[in-house]
Design a protein around this nucleic acid. Structure first.
Lengths: 133, 133
DNA sequence: ATATTTATTGATAAAAGTTACTAATAAAAA
DNA sequence: TTTTTATTAGTAACTTTTATCAATAAATAT
């Protein structure tokens, strides 16, 4: 992916701006609906294309929480994600530096070169916990 | 999901048997091709349906490694998975009991009830490492 | 400023993976 | 054996994502 010869179009700008405004980890389709309020003629394909480019160029994160669709996140500092099995929302979880330790512990037990670790959590959010009691 | 009133059909039996034979973590489609050799008239939908039922009833694992398609595994003892970014194959990684420790460390830093942890690894397998040197 | 180059767009179709539907079948119970 | 109903094959439909392509607009050169 060539991130040098990239142009800051209105569409790409608005997609990135709207993603930065939210903490909801929207899907491409959800973000499309939001962006459409500012750019009514934008197409869903353009949203997909820009999310792909932005994530490939390290400007945003593409998340796969096993839902059969991808989510996106403009927050780039280290953190984890928890998906509430009750309401389906995705929340940020503070980062505790486990990755390094996990890598260390895995040394010697296999013949692979580990290059990345994917971790996320399932659980029940505060709001849903209250509703249950 | 009602796992009591379940019938051991030839199709379900063969799907489970063939999955147990392999360590390749096949997709539904890949397993369909294998099962078809024994049951030429089985349909892809039946393979999907049975994999769904078997995993819902805790007989097999459904894996999502972020590829946009699910994989299945009949190995039920605790272990992790590594996907080789070079050849795309999925390998088993010995289990080191991280889950409990991770859960402990996450206590107090959030307001969620964590019910599950999804961990998998990206890397390069032994075979691909050799080819690179 | 203006012209040129080419990355990007909107619109649409198509691909890939998965689920839903239905009459017919077969596994378990009576 | 008969009855009940979970399951099947075949197919359509659905969801998410990617590809195609002529038209457009952002950056660069003139």
């Amino acid at each position: 992916m060539d991130c040098e010869n990239t142009r800051l179009t209105q569409q790409r700008k608005v997609v990135l701006e709207e993603l930065k405004k939210t903490t909801a980890h929207p899907t491409a389709d959800e973000l499309y609906e939001v962006v459409r309020k500012r750019l009514p003629n934008i197409s869903l394909g353009t949203v997909y294309r820009n999310l792909e480019i932005l994530s490939a160029c390290g400007e945003i994160l593409k998340l796969d929480l096993g839902e059969g669709k991808k989510r996106f996140d403009a927050r780039m500092d280290p953190h984890y994600h928890l998906r509430c099995t009750q309401c389906g929302r995705v929340f940020d979880i503070p980062y505790v530096p486990l990755d390094k330790e996990i890598e260390e512990r895995l040394q010697g037990v296999n013949h692979f070169k580990v290059t990345g670790i994917q971790i996320h959590f399932d659980g029940i959010c505060e709001e849903c916990l209250k509703k249950m009691n």
